[in-house]
Each structure stands twice: as structure tokens, then as C-alpha cells.
Amino acid sequence: MRARTIPIPPAPSSALEYLTTKKDELVGWARKFSLFPYPFVTACCAMEFMAVSSTPYDTDRFGAALPRFSPRQSDLLMVVGTLTHKQAPILRKVYEQMCEPKWVMAFGACATSGGFYQNYAAVAGIDKIIPVDIYVPGCPPRPETVIDGIMKLQDMIARSRHPIFTEEF
């Protein structure tokens, strides 16, 4: 019995069948729309975080709507509120548990610089503990400011290099 071959349809002559792009641009485009935030919420900024997560502001437009409550599944660490010295080891551990690539947002004045706290209890900015990619000012920041921060972070992700093999690989 003769083997039958399935005929391959001829290539259509329409446009956009092939796409050429740079790997970094493609990966960056994909990554900037799939930010899974991990909310590290410690203080009153949480109220604004709830507002920005709510329907009227719709962060799903930026692919950043689905909070993951495990640092291992998330790639955007949002530090929302004051960080105390007692909590600093926990933040450090959460950050170290996140897989690369990862980004950190300092949400509000306290996470950015300690805000008005300059005392024995508060860390004057989370960047003393972990590296920060985007600072969102305000006490607390308005939802529009947070969205602006997310968009600036997206621009940053789109512009940066995305190596597939790193030195640690």
C-alpha cells in the first residue's frame, strides 16, 4: 500500500506572515505586559493600593492586575508603606525568593525615603536593603501616580536588555 502524503497548502501571498524583530524588543514587550505584582503591604499606603487595584483604575490594562501572594510566582515587588528595622530581614528574604527577572517598586514616601520617620524604628528608604527600580512619591500616592509609575516601569522594561543566558545560568 502506498503511503499517502498530506499536501502542504501553498504559502498565501498576503502580508504579515513573517515578523522580524530583535529578541530584546520581543521579550521586553512580552514582559512589560505580564507584571505579576507581589504586594508587600505594611502601612497606610495599603488603602491607596486597594484603590489602584480596584475596577475604576483597572491596572489590568497594563497586565499588572493579578497579585500573586507567593514571591516565587511574581516578578514585581511592590513595597507599600513604612519599612521598620524589625521587618527588614523579612523584606530581604521575600526579595531573595523572587525569580529573575524581578523589579521593585517603592510605593509612597516611606518606602522611598522613610518619609517623615527618622527614628529608631523606621528604615529610611527600602533601597538601603534591596535595589529599587521605580520610586512612586506621595503620602500616599494618588492612583494616577501609581499608574504613571507602572507605565514608566513598563517603558524601562521595554528598553532594557533581556539576556536569555546569564552568567549564573
Binding site: H85, K86, P89, Y120, V123, I129, I130
Partner: peptide, 13 residues
């Protein structure tokens, strides 16, 4: 107690 004296648990970057 000095007003700004901190005693960090994590070494600063």
C-alpha cells in the same frame, strides 16, 4: 536615646 540612632538588623547596601 539619640533621636536618629538606628540599629539595623540587615546590613545596608
Amino acid at each position: 536615646y539619640p533621636k536618629r540612632q538606628e540599629q539595623p538588623l540587615v546590613p545596608y547596601r
